[in-house]
Nucleic acid binder design. Sequence first.
DNA 1: TCCCGATTTGAGAACCGTTCTCGAAAGGGT
DNA 2: ACCCTTTCGAGAACGGTTCTCAAATCGGGA
Lengths: 140, 140
Amino acid sequence: MRPTRQRRAVSEALSAFDDFRSAQQIHDLLCSRDDKVGLATVYRTLSALADAGEVDVLRNEDGESLYRRCSATHHHHLVCRACGATVEVEGPAVERWTRAIAREHGYAQVSHELEIFGTCPACLGSHDVPHDGPHDRADG
Amino acid sequence: MRPTRQRRAVSEALSAFDDFRSAQQIHDLLCSRDDKVGLATVYRTLSALADAGEVDVLRNEDGESLYRRCSATHHHHLVCRACGATVEVEGPAVERWTRAIAREHGYAQVSHELEIFGTCPACLGSHDVPHDGPHDRADG
DNA sequence: TCCCGATTTGAGAACCGTTCTCGAAAGGGT
DNA sequence: ACCCTTTCGAGAACGGTTCTCAAATCGGGA
């Protein structure tokens, strides 16, 4: 993969956020910086980064894909419903539990998805919503 | 909510499946039975059932919503990537763990999403895919 | 430095699941 | 039967994402 100007721009834009952002939000940020990158290229680059395991992807309740640069090790996310503030969490017990459940039912090649949603301390304090609005998601 | 012919049809169609199905698949089933129900009505009815907690919803990796009639108690799903065969599973330990993690970081109003994906015993045995194809989903 | 084939880009169209629109049809209470 | 409200449904609209394909760009070799 060639380190083109566009790909570097997308990668840097991702680093500018510490929470999950949509492809369009990243594109908007680049536009506001007069970084000329096509929307299709943003989508392509984010997909490539996701495939390479360099970013995590999750879907909000509208089905929109949200991206975030994360640590390489397996982990889950604790996400604020109001402002999107994200904490990476690990749960060896949960990993063991899912494997056990799968084995119990004879399922192989097991993977799992787990996200935790809530309201972060900052948003509990102030009732107005920070920056650009909620990255909401339904209960599970 | 009035028990109209259309709503009854959608509800019965749901019962005809024991795995997660899309609105369009349910609409197709109704059409093949010459049950005249508009697609919009199928969507509306499924949303209403989901809001009422009578069906569970999950999204496949394409962002498509899949519906399944489930038990009313809180549970998660063990889903076969190949045929969609679904087992409802409970994990009190996981419920406790998510609450603990959230509390630890000061998050309130906590909810979570957890799905487990794998290949079911039947699909491990026969390598051809049953019925109408995989309801696939990415790793978590 | 220039050339060349391969890769990448981007504007806009296409795609597709879902929701909206709004006039028509159906329900239910009286 | 009447009336008012809810529901229906065909098709348009919507919105995020992917595709198209000609033009731009890149990297390596001569």
